[in-house]
Design a protein around this nucleic acid. Sequence first.
DNA 1: CACCAGGTAATTC
DNA 2: GAATTACATGGT
Length: 310
Amino acid sequence: MHIDMHFDMHMVESQKVELKVKDFDLAKTVDCGQCFRWSRQEDDSYIGVVQGKILHIYQRDDVLTLRPTTLDDMKGLWLDYFDLWRDYSMMHRRIISKGPWMAGAAAAGKGIRILKQDPWETTITFILSANNHIPRISASVASLATRYGDYAGEFQGKAYYGFPSFEALGQLTLEEWQQCGAGYRAPYLVKTAQEWPGCFDALNNHLSMSSQKHQNHRQVLETLPGVGPKVSSCISLYGLGYHRQFPVDVWVRRRVKALWPEAPSSNRDIETKAIDLFGDAAGYAQQLLFYEARLNRTQQNGNKSRLENK
DNA sequence: CACCAGGTAATTC
DNA sequence: GAATTACATGGT
C-alpha cells in the first residue's frame, strides 16, 4: 500500500513532522519494558536514539510530533520502528475472542506497539535483563552508550549517543563490562559480542531458507552465551520483528497463572500454548500481560507474590 | 539483613 | 529431560 494512502502525515516546519495515529500510545509503548533507551522529559515528551538518529517525540491526543526528522526518515525508519503499518485493532479483537481472560490486560495496555528494534541491541540488552531490574538494565545500557556509542547529536543542551556497534563492544574487557554494571553476565557478554558476526550470518542463512524453519532460528540465537529460551524469544520478537513469540518471564508467568484457567505449568508449555492460541498476535498479547502485571508493582510486591504460584 | 529482579548455565539425578 | 543452585549488583 502506498504511504500517502496509509498515513496522514506532513511537515509542519523544517525538520518537524506531524503524524496522525490510531491505536497508539507513546508513553505506554516506550515505557513498557521492551526498550531501554527512551527518556521521559518534564513535559511528557520523550527523547531517544535509534539507528544513530536522535529523536524528540510527543503525543497530543491522536497526533504525534517528531523532530528533527524528514519525510524520508519517517518512511525509512520511524514508521517501521514504531510498527505503524500493523493493524493492532485486529490483533486486539483476536486476543479477546481467543482468550476472554485477557480482557483486563488488553484494556489496560491498549495503545502499546511492539517496537521493531535492532537485533544486536536487543541481544545485548536482553542478556543484561536476566535476573535484573528494568531501572538497572536501563542504567547499564545508558552507560554503554555514553562510553562506547557514537555521538548522535545534541538536544536541548544534552549530548546523546547511539547504542554501540558490535565492533566497539567486541573490544571490551571483562572489567569494562563490569564497570557498566553487567555483574555476573560480564563473561557472557564478552563472548557474545565476539561471536555475534558469525551468529548473525548463521541466523540470516537460516531465515532465508525459504521454508518453515522459522521456529528453529531461536536455537541459533541460543548458541550465544547468556541467551536462553526467554532471551531468544525477546530477541525474536523485538529485534527480528517475529511476532509469533510469547516470552515468559516471572511477571507474565504470574499473570498467566492467575488469569488463564487452562494455563500449563511449565514456561515452555505456556509459551507454546499461548502461541497456538494467539498466533501472530502472541507477542502483543504477552506485552499486554507484562504491562498490566507491572502497573501496580508497588502494591503487588510484598504480601501477594509469596502466595502466587509456585 | 533477607529477599527480589523481564534467567541462564552447570551440576545432579 | 526435570529439578536444584550459584550467579553481581543495587534497591527495599
